[in-house]
Design a protein around this nucleic acid. Sequence first.
DNA 1: GCGTGATACATCGTATCACGAGGCATTAAA
DNA 2: TTTAATGCCTCGTGATACGATGTATCACGC
Lengths: 106, 106
Amino acid sequence: MDIQLKRGLLDACVLAAIKDEDSYGYKIIKDMKPYLDMSESTLYTILKRLEAAKMLTVRTAEHEGRLRKYYHIEEPGLKRIEEFKEDWKEIMAVYRFITKEDDPNE
Amino acid sequence: MDIQLKRGLLDACVLAAIKDEDSYGYKIIKDMKPYLDMSESTLYTILKRLEAAKMLTVRTAEHEGRLRKYYHIEEPGLKRIEEFKEDWKEIMAVYRFITKEDDPNE
DNA sequence: GCGTGATACATCGTATCACGAGGCATTAAA
DNA sequence: TTTAATGCCTCGTGATACGATGTATCACGC
């Protein structure tokens, strides 16, 4: 799959993965795997970025002797997902331009 | 609009713009404008890249005293558009993961 | 004749960012 | 005791979109 095509989905995808329930890095990757293959280094980079942007908060917890960092989505993160949905309308318009397919709804 | 989201569309979009008829830089930008705002520097970078990848060929012509470089799509370019369409199926699966929308077809 | 905007091309430097390669530690299975 | 799974992290590199900037022609208004 074209890397460039994935780029725009990554942030929103990570946020979606923790939207309904707090999760941690290792699990997020496994949950996304069927849809999107993301390397660990990429995920942790993104998690740092989203934290810096206040879109999520982190809580460290011990689980069976191993460290886990649980990520919790915050208001700006939810807003980010909504913005993604808005942007998607424009993306679909571009998609139609590329594929020359007509949209009966517009 | 999120820049990252646009990235994967750029190459395919430029190829689509010259698919039916040879075109030149300035016109390509104007044609895409309603769908996608691309800066000139970005376009010329992309055209160079696509040329290097043999996806298109260039022909220089003079038009009313001004230079014009017409771009013509080649077989690999057409193939690239088809690959884009294939990739899009995966992209839509990711989109559904993000928006939690169910697809009745799968 | 002179400025301005449209037409048309190009280059360079910068910032962003995904990812591979590596590293560290624990637990369980082989 | 080696391997795989779990769980985290950093660093360097390459790709790349874009703003800034530059060059040149033509048409138009003043």
